[in-house]
């Protein structure tokens, strides 16, 4: 069952806004991409910095309106029918931001639980479970501003799971995580996926994408270069399926700039 569908999805940004600014420039961040994500799938979106990954995610999570094209999540349009989507999805952006840094981890999670309408009777137990899951129970009542980047990122993960989403969007979630933290995240992703959550993941970590994703799309300058399983992507670039995805990725980005599959 299609849980996400994008048809000819485009997004432009105008740089140099203002009435008196004559040097306006339009950047085509996403140039008409087509894809769908099946329910229960882990879908990876790979690409260079500025390729259009985050813009695509922002359109899917109802944060950004598409310039044109159709974008549907859980059967609802992401621009105009946001209310039906938001309670069933969540998202995690990489990096240290996205939390109230002067508040404790527990206070942050309680607040977001309220915003996501988690019933109060279940809230505190579930928060404890999440803190255990991300191995932060011992620091639950410490302000976020005292945390390392990796610890903050773990709380972000707990925040992203606060409403038990049907779809979890992860935008470079392992940025700043140490190898053990990244491993913990991968285990968590597999676990929640096995419980039925669909995952939409962007990452620069090819090992992570190869290990986790059922299908991968590689985006470059707003256009898809390829969309297939990791195994088929390797085969299509002429490398052995036992080799790393990174080799296939570099080959595709360097050699197939104008090939739209």
């Amino acid at each position: 069952m299609k849980i996400i569908e994008a048809i000819n999805l485009k997004r432009d940004f105008t740089i140099g806004k203002g009435i008196f600014n004559k040097n306006k420039k339009t950047i085509n961040a996403v140039k008409g991409i087509n894809f769908h994500v099946e329910s229960g799938e882990i879908f990876g979106l790979l690409g260079q910095n500025g390729a259009g990954k985050t813009t695509t995610i922002k359109m899917l999570i109802t944060m950004l309106a598409p310039t044109s094209g159709t974008c549907e999540v859980l059967g609802h349009k992401t621009f105009g029918e946001e209310k039906q989507i938001r309670k069933n999805i969540n998202f995690i952006f990489g990096g240290e931001y996205g939390l109230y840094r002067r508040l404790s981890a527990r206070d942050n999670l309680r607040y977001f639980a309220n915003l996501y309408k988690v019933p109060i009777k279940d809230r505190d137990n579930y928060i404890n479970e999440l803190l255990e899951l991300v191995e932060m129970s011992d620091r639950a009542d410490t302000p976020i501003e005292t945390f390392s980047k990796g610890m903050t990122q773990r709380i972000q993960i707990a925040r992203g799971l606060i409403n038990k989403p049907k779809i979890l969007f992860l935008d470079e979630p392992t940025i700043g995580l140490d190898p053990l933290g990244a491993e913990m995240l991968r285990v968590t992703i597999k676990k929640i996926n096995s419980q039925g959550t669909t995952i939409f993941l962007t990452t620069h970590n090819m090992y992570e994408a190869d290990e986790l994703c059922n299908r991968i799309a590689i985006i470059n300058k707003g256009e898809f270069l390829i969309l297939d399983t990791p195994k088929n992507i390797k085969i299509s670039t002429g490398i052995d399926e036992k080799d790393t995805l990174e080799e296939a990725y570099i080959k595709i980005i360097k050699g197939a700039k104008n090939e739209i599959i």
């Binding site: 944060m63 990096g95 931001y97 996205g98 977001f112 309220n114 996501y116």
Partner: peptide, 14 residues
């Protein structure tokens, strides 16, 4: 906006 919480609360179900 700077701490990225604006977009998160704006995109929440509330």
């Amino acid at each position: 906006r700077f701490t990225n919480t604006l977009s998160i609360i704006f995109s929440s179900p509330t």
